[in-house]
């Protein structure tokens, strides 16, 4: 079964109705918002990243590339690598946990999907900081988890999970799992069950059904989910501090440290921009490879 043989889910004849000119004025508030609160600060950061730090903080406007050279220091590269590692582990775990849930929800009758999606969303009604503290109370030595495990006779002495890298991953997976489930369930919903049945009918193995039918057809959801989990995990700073006990530094902690403790805004800006550009580059390379792959398959 070649996934490329599947008819595109959006018929070619579909065209958006032209937008009347005056209606585009409605975009203005959003554009003004983005311009004022995204592009202007970004431009400021870009400018500051080429300046240098005053002895007592503040910004001295002497143009230099020193901040960018400094980002390449092995010490800071190590922070980057550690963050990428923790964010990757988080993404893989979210995918492993989220895919079955998303698949299950998407295959439910429509009227029962609502309640499940609501359950996925409900945690968002509570502030993330408060939910993180709840985790701290659950994971600590005399906390709920250890009491339950000890009560069941599974452990002799309390498990020391809180304030480890594992606790960081638990916190990140917990926090970002909904971002994986929501786009994935939308993608699975668009996957016609008949295609999976057809694969079974053609004696495809379980793996073949998964890898050659389900995964290719839900790829947009997979990419969206992984991106939505990976990027915020990479920049997380609250979870490593609160659940990791500030024993390690992720890139978000380093940026926070440069701005608030070291009072080195220029270096902080440079790290933040390098982080942003590398994430954008990664995405762009992926999308380009993806498009090339599709073109190749379609042409061949």
């Amino acid at each position: 079964m070649n996934p490329d043989a599947v008819p595109p889910d959006r018929p070619e004849s579909f065209r958006a109705a032209p937008v009347p000119r005056r209606s585009s004025l409605l975009l203005l508030p959003a554009l003004a918002w983005l311009g004022l609160f995204f592009f202007v600060p970004l431009a400021l950061m870009l400018a500051i990243s080429f300046a240098s730090r005053g002895t007592y903080g503040g910004v001295v406007w002497t143009l230099s590339l020193a901040n960018y050279a400094n980002v390449l220091d092995p010490l800071y590269v190590k922070v980057f690598l550690r963050s990428v590692l923790l964010a990757s582990v988080t993404t893989v775990l979210c995918l492993a946990l989220g895919f079955p849930i998303a698949y299950y929800i998407a295959r439910l009758p429509a009227r029962r999907q609502g309640i499940w999606l609501l359950l996925v969303m409900i945690p968002f009604w509570t502030n993330f900081l408060i939910r993180t503290y709840a985790w701290i109370f659950m994971l600590r030595t005399e906390g709920l988890m250890n009491q339950v495990l000890a009560g069941l006779g599974l452990i002799g002495s309390p498990v020391d999970v809180l304030y480890t890298e594992m606790a960081i991953v638990i916190g990140l997976v917990y926090g970002y799992l909904p971002f994986m489930i929501l786009p994935l369930s939308a993608a699975v919903e668009r996957l016609p069950p008949s295609l999976v049945e057809a694969a079974w009918d053609l004696y495809a193995s379980r793996w073949a059904v998964l890898w050659r039918v389900i995964v290719p057809l839900t790829k947009p959801g997979l990419v969206a989910g992984c991106t939505l989990v990976f990027i915020p995990s990479l920049g997380a700073f609250m979870t490593p501090d609160l659940m990791g006990g500030a024993r390690t530094m992720m890139i978000g902690n380093l940026i926070q440290h440069e701005f608030l403790v070291a009072r080195d805004w220029p270096f902080g800006s440079a790290i933040a921009l390098v982080l942003m550009v590398s994430v954008l580059l990664g995405l762009a390379i992926y999308l380009r490879a993806e498009r090339a792959g599709t073109r190749l398959a379609a042409g061949g």
Binding site: T55, L75, V79, T248, M249, H257, R263, D264
Partner: peptide, 18 residues
């Protein structure tokens, strides 16, 4: 305040954390 030596502390602190 340790003035410019603050950079040394910043770096050493990051090294301890890593």
């Amino acid at each position: 305040d340790v003035g410019e030596a603050a950079r040394l502390y910043d770096r050493a602190w990051t090294e301890v954390k890593l």
